[in-house]
Amino acid sequence: MSLVNMAKDEHRGANKAVIVPGNGGGNIESCLWYGWTKKRLNKIPNFQCLLRNMPDPYTAREEIWLPFMESELQCDDQTIIIGHSSGAAAAMRYAETHKVFAIILVSAYTSDLGDPIEQESGYFNRPWQWEAIKSNCRYIVQFGSTDDPFLPWSEQQDVADGLGAELHKYLDRGHFQNTEFHELISVVQKLLDSRA
């Protein structure tokens, strides 16, 4: 590959988003804001949004989800990964070892919170590689809310501090279990505008 082509590849923009949901199972097309977001992002020209039911939906094991994200969802350096809750943990671990265009973390956290299912998932059994994640992502955006009933704000802030994320902090959004998410659409559009 010539140096010119390498330079072009280095500056490729995003051509898709992948929504990685929280654990819990069910058809994610009709869950929370996921399907609503997919429909809106798929209206953007030359862009697609993927939303798939994940394997192992209840425990969300890292050893199952990360290979699925690589082989089935084909998350790469032109992908914006939108991860919610367990999906945010998956997005961060994925970005430790894979180049992606951006990660958008919704309700991200740093520990298993003493929960047996979170412990079994495998995401929290070692330190986070903040520098590796930062070097593998062109953009990192985070949405968090101080009134999240499941996550202490201190852990959400630790993610923002560790990653130097563009933090969208709310006081009244809980665990972002709403059915629409207009601010997320705006952030994705802003990232896509940066492709030019």
Rank of each mutant, 00 (worst) to 15 (best):
M1K: 13
L3A: 15
L3H: 15
D9C: 07
I19F: 03
V20C: 11
V20P: 04
P21D: 02
G22Y: 08
G24E: 02
G24D: 01
G25W: 02
N27A: 04
N27H: 08
I28S: 01
L32D: 09
L32W: 09
L32C: 15
L32N: 14
W33G: 02
Y34L: 09
R40F: 05
I44F: 09
P45D: 12
N46R: 09
L51W: 03
P55N: 08
P55I: 13
P57F: 07
R61Q: 15
E62F: 02
S71D: 07
E72A: 14
D76M: 09
I81W: 01
G83H: 06
A91D: 06
M92W: 03
E96R: 04
H98R: 15
K99C: 06
V100R: 03
F101I: 05
I103G: 01
I104H: 00
Y109W: 13
T110F: 07
D115F: 08
I117P: 00
S121C: 11
Y123D: 04
P127G: 11
W128L: 12
Q129G: 01
E131G: 02
E131T: 15
S135A: 11
S135T: 13
C137I: 13
C137R: 10
Y139L: 00
Q142R: 04
Q142K: 02
G144T: 11
D147I: 04
P149K: 07
P149E: 10
L151S: 05
Q156N: 04
Q157D: 10
D158A: 15
V159H: 08
V159Y: 05
V159C: 13
L163H: 12
G164M: 06
E166T: 15
H168T: 10
D172V: 14
R173G: 01
G174Y: 00
F176C: 10
F176K: 13
E180S: 13
F181Q: 01
E183P: 06
V187P: 00
D193M: 14
R195Q: 01
